[in-house]
Amino acid sequence: MQRVNMIMAESPGLITICLLGYLLSAECTVFLDHENANKILNRPKRYNSGKLEEFVQGNLERECMEEKCSFEEAREVFENTERTTEFWKQYVDGDQCESNPCLNGGSCKDDINSYECWCPFGFEGKNCELDVTCNIKNGRCEQFCKNSADNKVVCSCTEGYRLAENQKSCEPAVPFPCGRVSVSQTSKLTRAETVFPDVDYVNSTEAETILDNITQSTQSFNDFTRVVGGEDAKPGQFPWQVVLNGKVDAFCGGSIVNEKWIVTAAHCVETGVKITVVAGEHNIEETEHTEQKRNVIRIIPHHNYNAAINKYNHDIALLELDEPLVLNSYVTPICIADKEYTNIFLKFGSGYVSGWGRVFHKGRSALVLQYLRVPLVDRATCLRSTKFTIYNNMFCAGFHEGGRDSCQGDSGGPHVTEVEGTSFLTGIISWGEECAMKGKYGIYTKVSRYVNWIKEKTKLT
């Protein structure tokens, strides 16, 4: 034993070699072989497995989906700052455009905790909710729209109204504003409101030439003092309507412009014939205590009207009353817009006519005020429907199939267009061939041609 100890002390290297040989010859039971080890760690190889990531292109799944990435790591994937920024906006807080917040056709661009709407022409605001041009839906104005110097929408209202708090709607500024039905039992019968379409306001006024200088022999019209197929109006439903009495009662109609003036057809009036105007009328054979009678003290036909040349060209006249009318729910003026808007309103496509005229061709006159909704007829169809001249200051309205029309005794009465609950004068009943005849239409004086003249002559002093 002493000898062994001496050998170990003198030859430590020998001992180490012996131990190493023993270990190498022993069977290893701690580690699995290569094949079995792979069965336990069965993990798919990654895209760049075996390579240094710093030297390969980034992978979106590896960089940002398996674990949260930084902007720089995302930049490695896209290799483009702009594309990385677009991805980053949604990656950080989701897609803010998912709810489609942009209105009126706006395009949404996502941002971090926010979004941006790219608005089409005519709109602005956070969600493109603000109209900035009158060309689109009248700028959301209830009545009139004008573009300011910086191309912003400025709404306005006709006389007797003021802008509401929203700067879009119009509200009454006087007790009985024009064009409004205020009798409670008839307010439910107000005709369907007309909503502004998209309009090209630059070209809204037709490029028409008034044929002022045409000389033409007097034409022989049949029954051209021209509501057939209409309905009984309720008291106060058309408070701007008046009836004219002269040699015979209810020979023509008219509309209240203001307390002192009536507008009617020029062919209705004769110099030297006494005319009485009755406002607030409903049943011409009954006294309903809503009527107001006034005498006409002055007749002003349009300066281009000449019955000797043509009885229905420039067929418009103004009547001055001896005493002002007292405005109330049964006696209310009709609204008159400017030339541009009167023309736009007419193009809405349908209007209402009213009167006490004959209820059928050569038949009896109506006792109760009649009204009828009539569609506008395109000019080409209008011209083809008659052998008589249709001037540019006239328009056609009615039904091709016949059966409904204005008729004798309705002449001078109103053709009105309702705009968001307020009625505007767009025409004056003038003439036609018979009444409600198939293929024939009622012919009306186009008020847009005469609004400046009306307003100039009827100013209240």
Rank of each mutant, 00 (worst) to 15 (best):
C155P: 01
N59W: 01
F121N: 08
V263Y: 01
I136L: 09
C155G: 00
V273W: 13
Y91L: 05
K126T: 14
M8K: 13
L318Q: 00
V153Y: 08
C157P: 00
C178H: 00
L376K: 05
K247C: 05
Y352K: 02
E72S: 06
G280D: 00
E193G: 15
R75G: 12
T389K: 08
Y91I: 06
A149D: 14
T342S: 14
N113R: 12
K457T: 15
F424H: 02
G432D: 10
L318N: 01
K362A: 14
N151A: 08
E270I: 09
D200R: 10
E288T: 07
A308Q: 14
T16P: 09
F424R: 00
H267T: 05
T422Y: 04
E73S: 00
F55I: 07
V56H: 01
I309R: 10
Y441Q: 03
D110E: 12
Y330G: 04
E159C: 04
V331N: 01
D378L: 04
L103N: 13
N310T: 07
N313L: 10
S114R: 12
E171L: 11
L130S: 12
V56D: 01
C108L: 03
K109T: 13
P177W: 01
I40T: 02
G442A: 15
A337Q: 00
S217H: 08
E231C: 10
I40N: 04
R43A: 02
G398D: 04
L189P: 12
Y352R: 06
A279T: 04
Q237L: 09
G21M: 14
A207V: 09
S406I: 11
L460A: 08
K137Y: 08
I112T: 12
T16I: 10
A279P: 01
W118P: 05
N245A: 07
V154Y: 13
C117N: 02
N151Y: 12
D33P: 06
C155H: 00
Y161E: 00
V199G: 11
T84I: 03
E73D: 01
C102W: 02
R3P: 13
R180Y: 06
W356V: 07
N213S: 10
L130F: 10
I284L: 15
K146T: 15
F87C: 00
K311R: 14
D315Q: 01
S329C: 05
F196H: 13
C134S: 03
C102T: 02
E61Q: 06
D410T: 15
D95S: 12
P172L: 04
Y371I: 12
G349M: 04
Q90G: 12
W431R: 10
T218M: 06
K146M: 14
L460R: 12
V451L: 04
D338K: 05
L346D: 02
S411W: 15
E281M: 13
C407N: 04
I275L: 14
E286D: 11
C396S: 02
V416T: 13
L41F: 05
I262L: 04
E418P: 11
R449N: 15
V199C: 07
E231R: 12
G106D: 03
S99D: 10
C335Q: 01
E420I: 06
F71S: 03
L60P: 03
T271C: 05
L367D: 12
R162F: 10
L130A: 08
I7R: 14
Q408C: 12
S204P: 10
E116W: 11
I443W: 09
T458A: 06
G179M: 00
D378C: 03
E340M: 08
K274W: 04
S406A: 08
E67L: 00
Y312E: 03
A37M: 03
D232E: 15
Y312D: 02
S11W: 08
E82C: 03
W240T: 01
D249C: 03
V154M: 14
C335V: 00
Y371P: 07
N213Q: 09
V56T: 14
G442K: 08
A164N: 09
N313K: 10
R62F: 00
I428S: 01
Q90V: 12
